[in-house]
Write a protein that binds this DNA or RNA. Structure first.
Lengths: 273, 273
DNA sequence: CGGTATATGTCGCTC
DNA sequence: GAGCGACGTATACCG
């Protein structure tokens, strides 16, 4: 990992076109070749970035119009270096993007001293960083990270409700979790006390698209004469008003789940064994 | 902005619980108090983070069991410092999370030397970083970033198509952009050559949820006897096959937009004036 | 402040 | 690789 604090200007061309005016920023070059441009604020998202796999080519000002100093900073295919020539003869759209500004940020007395060209071979995305002043430059080898261990997301809610299906009322039973359909798995398929089949869609936060999802499942399930009629329940820790309205309009019941209570039940049950 | 490369272990408690085992990582503390934990790979997303507004409290090992060295690293309300005491006497769930691991990563010969407690006052999210070894530590003042200038997002597509509605064919006219309905704004409302009303949903990439969105709008618009019948057009730079099928099934036409061509038309037009 | 739609979304899974 | 759903989604816009 290389950390460069520098006054720089950045241009990105890919799914969109974006430009960052000259200012001090943090540049991160990771071991996999990815590049992040961070400001001193905002959120965890960089102002600009390039995802791996990508290649970084560095040009210093003195070399600018001569042969470029090729710096293979990744372990990607070395033979793709030939694409550097293609890059020089790339289609006109890129030169338009670069020329349209007429380089207003490089007056005689403040030229860029180093340029990074980061390219994503697959998507064609390109990131260009022009460094005018290096404030600090540091490298460190961190090795491979052991990774993040997570706990407590929707899957957990689903497991808890499946294990405690009687939370919905006396006489309810579980048919199965992740009931497969052609358009995706239904979170829970259950039977109500009258023996009717019920499809349950679970969300942490119940919003309109969750109702749409359940609607699609119900439409499909109700085409199966062996299952039909199937009604739906939309279960979430919090259900937005609009989602409630849409669900009601489509005859779907809403249930608010209490994660802590479910976990409590579960803990109490497991303590019995 | 402070950049610390350190061997550390991280725990997060908030909407979920997450743990990072002891390993070398980059820690970024931004001017607004936000903290990012990056590995040397992956993507632009940190392994763990805390969004602003949040407060950072630093404890060094020698102080660990005595009074904590309070380091107000943000410009947030100073009087919330009183919550530090609440933190010490916080509800049991947090101590459970911390104690459940029994501190397996701190053997006698490798103790943590510094601990960061980052808390988000509003949401109650907490991030704890235990530093076992500082590899490097650097601070820099970057100032406020002038910000990113974007071009080519959906808003531009919408504006371009609205201004060049005749792209859809001879005799088309614009009714209005962002036509408001109870469930959200329709991107473009237009009239076809026969005078029929058409709702147009625009996406950069046309996928199934965009068709769902347009379907909701059409359902609502067609309840209005003054507007009905309203048909739909799904317009995007690229339309996925599944979205095309679903749109066709619902009588919605698909149009593929050429952003560069639209921009070209627009440039040509503006050059006339 | 809540509701909705967008994102260079990214990530991870299944097929 | 495409399709699809979840995400500590974050973020902007609008009432």
């Amino acid at each position: 990992m290389r950390l460069v604090v520098a006054r720089c200007a950045v241009d990105y061309t890919g799914r969109l076109t974006a430009h960052l005016p000259l200012a001090p920023r943090l540049l991160i070059v990771k071991a996999d070749g990815s590049v992040l441009v961070h400001s001193d604020g905002g959120s965890y998202k960089p102002l600009n970035w390039m995802s791996p796999p990508c290649t970084l080519r560095t040009i210093t000002r003195s070399d600018a119009d001569a042969d470029a100093d090729t710096d293979a900073d990744t372990d990607a295919d070395a033979d793709t270096a030939g694409s550097v020539e293609d890059h020089g003869a790339a289609p006109d759209e890129e030169s338009v993007a670069a020329a349209s500004v007429e380089d207003p940020e490089a007056p005689e007395d403040d030229p860029w001293i180093e340029q990074w060209d980061v390219t994503h071979a697959k998507t064609g995305d390109r990131l260009r960083v022009r460094i005018h002043e290096v404030i600090s430059d540091l490298s460190a080898d961190l090795g491979v990270d052991p990774g993040l261990q997570k706990d407590g997301v929707e899957a957990h809610l689903q497991a808890l409700l499946a294990e405690n299906i009687e939370t919905l009322g006396e006489g309810w039973s579980l048919v199965r979790r992740e009931y497969a359909t052609a358009i995706g798995p239904v979170d829970i398929l259950a039977k109500d006390p009258e023996g009717g089949t019920v499809a349950i869609e679970i969300k942490r936060r119940g919003e309109i698209d969750g109702v749409e999802q359940l609607t699609r499942y119900l439409e499909l399930l109700n085409r199966d004469p062996l299952l039909s009629p199937v009604r739906g329940i939309f279960a979430a820790q919090l259900i937005k008003p609009q989602a409630k309205v849409l669900a009601g309009d489509r005859g779907i019941d809403c249930v608010t789940l209490d994660y802590d209570a479910l976990r409590g039940i579960d803990d109490a049950e497991s303590r019995l064994f």
